[in-house]
Design a protein around this nucleic acid. Structure first.
Length: 190
DNA sequence: TAGGCCATCTGGTCCT
DNA sequence: AGGACCAGATGGCCTA
């Protein structure tokens, strides 16, 4: 059990004392930390005790920094646990939002689900395509032009050939969907 | 095995 | 003051 290997600050000192910040970051305070649960969406193993003790933006040479505090080590650890829980919930809700976004974006069905960056990129393309359709229906000039992926240096840098092909497929699918949608709208407005 | 993607922890900063 | 948000760090899983 990992949690047993790492000392819990409050077990040694529960007074209002100076405590190295490192001590707090080592331990989540729960015995189930070492047991990973599986992610129902991906089947991935999920670590309950994530980054290392030295992680964090404050790790820039301040790992031995001491700080006077007016609360006990136990209290601080409790706050940290609560913050961790809130952060976890926040990230879960963010992931839920990504999942909902995946469901409304037309894309080629793949064995694996869209990654977050793919989801955002496709959503952006979809919005741009929809915007163009609206402009077209209004008889206005199209707002966006879909760049030829071959000439898009950023895309070339960021995507593999498979991804480029998929992007092309998705863009053409956007176009087909939009044309169908546009036809339906035309019919309904007659 | 390297690289991509991800979940989680963590501390700093912003906001209410 | 406390919660939300953010970004850095780390390690696990998966795939080419």
């Amino acid at each position: 059990m990992r949690s047993l290997e790492i000392s819990a600050p409050w077990q040694e000192e529960d007074e209002d004392v100076e405590v190295e910040e490192m001590e707090l970051s080592k331990h989540d305070g729960r015995d189930d930390l070492t047991e990973s649960s599986s992610d129902e969406a991906t089947g991935r193993k999920r670590r309950k005790n994530g980054g290392s003790a030295s992680s964090g933006s404050a790790s820039s040479g301040t790992t031995t920094r001491r700080r006077k505090t007016c609360i006990s080590a136990r209290e601080r650890n409790l706050r940290r646990l609560e913050s961790n829980e809130r952060e976890r919930m926040r990230m879960h809700s963010l992931n839920d939002a990504f999942e909902q976004l995946r469901e409304v974006i037309p894309h080629i069905k793949m064995e694996r689900k869209l990654s977050k960056i793919e989801t955002l990129t496709l959503a952006k393309n979809y919005i741009m395509a929809l915007t163009n359709v609206i402009c077209e229906m209004r008889g206005e000039e199209k707002h966006y032009t879909f760049q030829d992926v071959e000439s898009d240096s950023n895309l070339e840098l960021e995507t593999t050939a498979d991804e480029i092909n998929r992007e092309q497929n998705n863009n053409s699918m956007f176009q087909q969907n939009l044309e169908t949608h546009q036809d339906n709208v035309m019919v309904n407005t007659r």
